[in-house]
Design a protein around this nucleic acid. Sequence first.
DNA 1: TTTTCCAGATTGTCAGACAGACTCACGATC
DNA 2: GATCGTGAGTCTGTCTGACAATCTGGAAAA
Lengths: 268, 268
Amino acid sequence: MSCAGSRARVVAAGVDAPRQPTRGPDPSTVRLVTAGEETGTFRGIRVGRIAAPLREQVIDGLRTAILEFELQPGQRLVERELVEQTGVSRATIREALRELAAEGLVVTVPQKGAMVYKPSADEARDLYAVRASLEALTVRRFIERARAAHHDRLRATVTALEEDVADGADMHRLLRDKDLFYTELLAGAASPTIEQILGGVQARVRLLRATSMSQPGRAAQMAAEMRALVEAITARDVASAQRLCIEHLDNAAATALAALDGVGRQGS
Amino acid sequence: MSCAGSRARVVAAGVDAPRQPTRGPDPSTVRLVTAGEETGTFRGIRVGRIAAPLREQVIDGLRTAILEFELQPGQRLVERELVEQTGVSRATIREALRELAAEGLVVTVPQKGAMVYKPSADEARDLYAVRASLEALTVRRFIERARAAHHDRLRATVTALEEDVADGADMHRLLRDKDLFYTELLAGAASPTIEQILGGVQARVRLLRATSMSQPGRAAQMAAEMRALVEAITARDVASAQRLCIEHLDNAAATALAALDGVGRQGS
DNA sequence: TTTTCCAGATTGTCAGACAGACTCACGATC
DNA sequence: GATCGTGAGTCTGTCTGACAATCTGGAAAA
C-alpha cells in the first residue's frame, strides 16, 4: 500500500519482514502523500499534506488485512505481535485498535484484547437490514445529485462485473468489482456522512460476502440484479431503484445466512 | 508507581469534584457493576464483571459532557487539559479520543487535535436522512420483536413526554424524555447492531436537537407526532408507523435546519 | 505596513515499567 | 481418578517521561 522503503510494512498478518531502528522522526516515513486527505495546489505544484499519521497507516493496513481475509474473523489481535509486524509502538497500535473497534471491524473484550469481528447469524441479519436501508437512501441521493459522468462510471462498473462473471472470475475478483460499484455509487451520492456510516456497515458485511458469493449460481444472479438496479438508476426511477436495491440485499442476506448456517464454523 | 490521591475525576468538563484514589486495580473502582456487559448469575447471586476500564469511564464522561453541551460543538479538546481534568494519563485520553472520533462525536484534524463535532447544514441534512432510514427499520423490528412489557413502557415514555410538554418543561427535560423513548424503542427492537449504528447517528443529531426543539410550538407538535407513532406501533401497523417515523424526522430536520440557517454561529 | 523569524504550545510517537487479569499445566488433596 | 489450588507466563490497562515536527501568535526586521 503506501509507505516507503522499509518502514511500517502493511501489517501483512503473519509475514514478518525484519525492521530497522525506526524512530518517530524518521524522514522515510513522512514523505509519502496519502491519497486523499488535504492536498492543496499551489501554482500548479501539488503540495501533498504530510502522509496520514502513522496511526492512520496502521489502521488502513489492518483494515485491508481484515477485509482481504489475511486476518480471519475471530482471530485474536495480540498487541505485541502487531508491534513486531508493523514496527510502530504499542501506544500507536492501541490507538489504531480503538478506532477499528469503534468502527466495528474488531471487537474488544476487556482484559482479553481485540479480535477480528465475526458476525453471528443474528448480527448478520441486522447488518444486511441496516445496509439495505442505507443503500436505498444512497441510491436516492445518487439519483438526486449524480452527474452524467457519475452515471457513466457506475454503468461501467456493472459492465465490468458482468464480463468478469461471464469469464468465470473468482470470488475475490467479483468482490472487488462490487466494491468499485459501491465506490462509484457513494461518490455520486456526494455525502461524506452517508459514506462514513454505510462504509462501516459494508465493511462488516464484507466479512460475510465471501461465503455468500461463492454459492454456485449466485454470481450470475447477482450481476443480473445489479444490472436491473443500474438501469433503474439511469432511468432516474427512485422507487424502482430502491426496491431493486432492497431486493438485492434480501437475496444476498438469504444466501449468506444459508451459507452461514450450513458451514458452521471452520476457518480460524 | 502509579497514581495516588486525586485521580481520574469523571471529566465533568469544567466542574471538578474531588475524587477518591481510583486505580486500575483499586478495589473501590472494581466493585461497581457496569450496567450491561457480561453479568452472570450463579445460584441467585449476581456476579458483576469488573467496572469498565478507565478509558471507558473517560469516554462516557466525555460523551456525556458533549451531549449535555458542557463541551460546545466546535470546542477544541486539548489533551493536556483533559489529562488535568480527568486525572488519567495522556495515553488513555488519546485512546478515548480516538474512539470518540471513530464514533463521530469529535473530529480530529491532523497536527491540530480534536474538537467537538459541529455538523454543517449539509451534514445535518444527511444525518437526519440516515436517522430516518434507521429509525424506520428500528420501528419495524420493534413491532416484530417487542413484547407487551416493551409496548407498555414505550407508551409510558410518550405519556411522560406529553405531560412535560403540557407543564411547559424546558428543552433539556424534553430532550431527556425523547432519549428515554428511543432507549425503549431500541430495547424492544432487540438489536445490538442497530443500536450501535443508530446510537452514533442519534448522538450526532442530538447536537442539533437543542436548537430545533427550542423553536416555539415545536414541542407540542413533536409530542403529537410521537403519540401518533406510538399508536401505530401499538396497532402493529408497520407501514403507518414507518411513515409517521419518517415524517416526524422530516419535520424535525426542517425545523433544525431552519434554526441552523437563522442562527449562524455564535456559541464557542 | 508587511514580511520574517523565533519561542511556546500541542500533537504524534516512542521506550520502558509495572500491576492486575487470564490461561493452563502441574502437583496436592479427597 | 477427579477436583482444587497454586504458580509461572502471557497479555492488557495505565502511567511516566521524552523528543521531534508542526502550528500559532507576536516581536523584530525590512
